[in-house]
Design a protein around this nucleic acid. Structure first.
Length: 387
DNA sequence: GCGACAG
DNA sequence: ATCTTGTCGC
């Protein structure tokens, strides 16, 4: 049975795009480009990949080790965690790396060459996912991507093995490599401690039958499986949630609101009254108050979720509830004006229960009064649920 | 300024 | 990445 570990977002992980770009500029100097890398066909080759369930805030990563000569599976490991960053082109690594590192750490054997689903050198700042993972682990890495990103290339000739340069302006940052006759090429770039020739040779060795390397195919299928397992409905938890009188009350309260976004905004405002704000919380408050900004709901949700990572090293119950309320404001605003896809339609049911939790966690008894005022009512059966 | 943009 | 009906091929 493969190992499975759980990770949280690392303390100090970048919360904004600016911070993330600064990290890339800092780490870029550590990439090693002048090693040839392990010869194809010997030792281990490891594929890593990640799958997401944004709705449940779950990310699952897989690492699958293959025997480079036979392409047989030697070992595999998975890890699940919270989503640490929104998807931003050029910042993919910050979304994938924490969970991928945990999966690699859980392997029972050395990974050898790591094949990433994405880019290395071929990146706006020349520091893509494969480069980043290589610098953090010290392992030789390459990137094999399915799309050309922002780069240009001429179509390679028809036969498998043909290639053309992948260009950023005039600079060769990788290759468009045909892995199957007359099938769309893959886009290979160097990560860490591997030459472009070696990277392409490995890619061809790993594609005896399909367009994509066996490493990424195996890792892709395994991380999807791990995600399913992690988010599978737990009958026990579902029963407990369904039996929770607070949830029932929260639903009816929410459905009686004529303007849920404004209402949730007022609840959030009451929750943070007298406490220190973050820019993201202010963002959510502003969002709720201005109907013409509701189309930014998803963006605000992403920002709040990203910023809450910075508070994970000091897990304060009150703070965490406030962030979840702010996330809800973003979700409700988005759901009010679209466009699809929408967030969970049941999201608003949590506003009431979260307000109650905040009042329970707060040291200041005045918080309960403020929350009750903002909600408009308080759950009648809160205290005498089962007795 | 606007759109495009690894997964 | 994820959402999704039908469709082509072994």
């Amino acid at each position: 049975m493969p190992t499975m570990t759980t990770v949280s977002i690392p303390a100090g992980w970048p919360a904004t795009e600016e911070e993330a770009r600064a990290v890339q500029d800092e780490l870029r100097a550590r990439v090693v480009l002048d090693e040839p890398g392990p010869p194809p066909g010997s030792g281990h080759v490891t594929g890593v990949d990640v799958a997401y369930d944004d709705e449940h805030d779950v990310v699952a990563a897989a690492a699958v080790v293959l025997d480079a000569a036979t392409l047989d599976v030697v070992a595999e490991a998975t890890a699940v965690g919270r989503i640490s960053f929104p998807y931003v082109p050029g910042l993919l690594a910050f979304r994938e790396i924490p969970t991928v590192l945990a999966a690699l750490d859980a392997l029972p054997c050395p990974p050898g060459l790591v094949v990433c689903d994405g880019y290395g050198l071929a990146h706006p700042r020349r520091f893509g996912l494969a480069s980043h993972l290589g610098v953090l682990t010290g392992l030789p890495t390459i990137g094999v991507a399915k799309n050309p990103f922002t780069f240009t290339y001429d179509a390679p000739a028809g036969p498998r093995g043909s290639w053309t340069p992948l260009l950023a302006a005039d600079e060769e940052v990788g290759r468009a490599l045909r892995t199957r006759d007359s099938v769309k090429p893959v886009f290979v770039s160097v990560g860490h401690r591997v030459s472009l020739d070696t990277a392409c040779a490995h890619t061809l060795t790993l594609t005896p039958e399909y367009r994509l390397p066996e490493t990424t195919r195996r890792a892709d299928s395994l991380c999807r499986k791990a995600l399913k397992e992690a988010t599978r409905p737990r009958p026990e938890l579902a029963a407990r949630a369904a039996a929770d009188p607070t949830r029932t009350w929260g639903r009816s309260l929410y459905e009686r609101q004529s303007n849920p976004v404004v209402w949730a905004g007022r609840v959030l405002a009451a929750a943070v009254e007298g406490t220190e704000r973050t820019p993201e919380i202010d963002d959510a408050l502003e969002l709720a108050a201005h109907r013409d900004r509701w189309s930014r709901g998803r963006e605000v949700f992403d920002r709040v979720r990203a910023s809450s990572a910075a508070y994970l090293d000091q897990p304060d119950e009150e703070q965490s509830v406030v962030f979840r309320l702010a996330e809800l404001v973003g979700k409700l605003a988005h759901n009010a004006v679209g466009p699809p896809p929408f967030f969970d339609h049941h999201a608003g049911w949590q506003v009431g229960p979260l307000a109650v939790r905040l009042a329970t966690a707060a040291h200041d008894p005045a918080v309960r009064t403020r929350m009750a005022d903002a909600l408009g009512e308080w759950p009648p059966t809160e205290a005498d649920g089962t007795s």
